[in-house]
Amino acid sequence: MCNRVELEGVLISSRGLRYTPAGIPVFEGVLAHRSTQTEAGAERRIEFEVGIKSLGECGLRLAELPLGAVIHCTGFLAARTLKSRTPILHITELRHMEGKEHG
């Protein structure tokens, strides 16, 4: 079944990097999105925040970005945990658009 998300947003929070027992880096954070979209023929402003998770190479790159960085990413949605079924975005591809300087 199709599960592909393409999204741009600002990295607004990071829980830093951790590693799985097998040594794979895991990044978790929150991405904020703000844009204008067309709905039923009318333009509207939208805003939301979404939990993100990224493993491996992509996760390492995310961990190096400062908060406030704007990224373009693709990935898929998956449940946060077995118990919490709300989805988070798993990022598998990443492009750094621009960002605040560190600090």
Binding site: T20, A22, I24, V26, L55, G56
Partner: peptide
């Protein structure tokens, strides 16, 4: 960096991906 059985001494490397669903994010 391995998983140990404290009863029989069996040891193995933690799997890279979950053997059931393939997820990579396994947690201690």
């Amino acid at each position: 960096g391995r998983m140990h059985c404290h009863h029989c001494g069996h040891r193995e490397a933690p799997p890279r991906a979950c053997p059931e669903c393939g997820a990579l994010d396994l947690r201690p």
